[in-house]
Amino acid sequence: MQPILSCRDVKVSFNGFQALQGVDLTVYPQEVRFLIGPNGAGKTTLLDVICGKTKASDGEVVYRETENIRRLQEHQIVHLGITRKFQAPSIFANLTVWENLELSLKQKRSLWAVMRARLIKEDKEKMEAMLGRIGLAHQRHQQAGMLAHGQKQWLEIGMQLMQEPEILLLDEPIAGMSETERYKTGELIHEISQNCSVLIVEHDMEFVRNFSKQVTVMHEGRVLCEGTMAEIQQNEQVAEVYLGRRESAC
């Protein structure tokens, strides 16, 4: 199968600090891939590189085996179908839930097109369906800033889905969510993967265990190993990275 995204030897340095020291990662269509690893492993930095927020100093990020997106601007990468949900919910607090979704519609984003844009019936139906899916139908006219934390997270996931992405990048989507919200989010992620690939950074091991197929472990700016959660738990290197500190503490 043709991969949808391949990172080859991606390196990033911040003022001499090597945050990524040559990462290789391949993601296939409709795959749910979890990225785990201790703090400072470079998981979020890798997402930043893919979505264009941080520019890689070396290496390639190839989309659909044809296009190197390493030097594209953020909005150009979005146009290709790669969207990103940030760790802290970053919705537009002063706009209503409905207006947030309206801006997220897959649409022509040029100034001229947007100035003349009207909400057509088809768009409204899509937005209604999304409101139902993320459970915010009753909050549609509320200012997004007034929502509860979990609702903000869902709204942001909804905003990404409105763009009908090919690849969805999620950075700790369940942080700050209650048990039921976590479960619902997991279900939602699996539903999403019917139509697109999902790349998730997550710290919550129980969540990873419940909802992952393939897991990539990162450590100190490199990929340590890949496999199912069961395989990874057997891996000695991983145990060392995660548990080594505990041993040394003893």
């Binding site: 979505c51 927020k53 601007q73 953020e74 909005h75 979005v78 146009h79 969207t83 990103r84 940030f86 970053s90 919705i91 537009f92 607090a93 002063n94 706009l95 801006l103 997220s104 984003r109 947007v114 905003m159 763009q163």
Partner: peptide
């Protein structure tokens, strides 16, 4: 309210 966020919705 969030210029960078706007970029990630595909607007320049």
């Amino acid at each position: 309210d969030g210029e960078n966020r706007v970029r990630f919705l595909g607007f320049n």
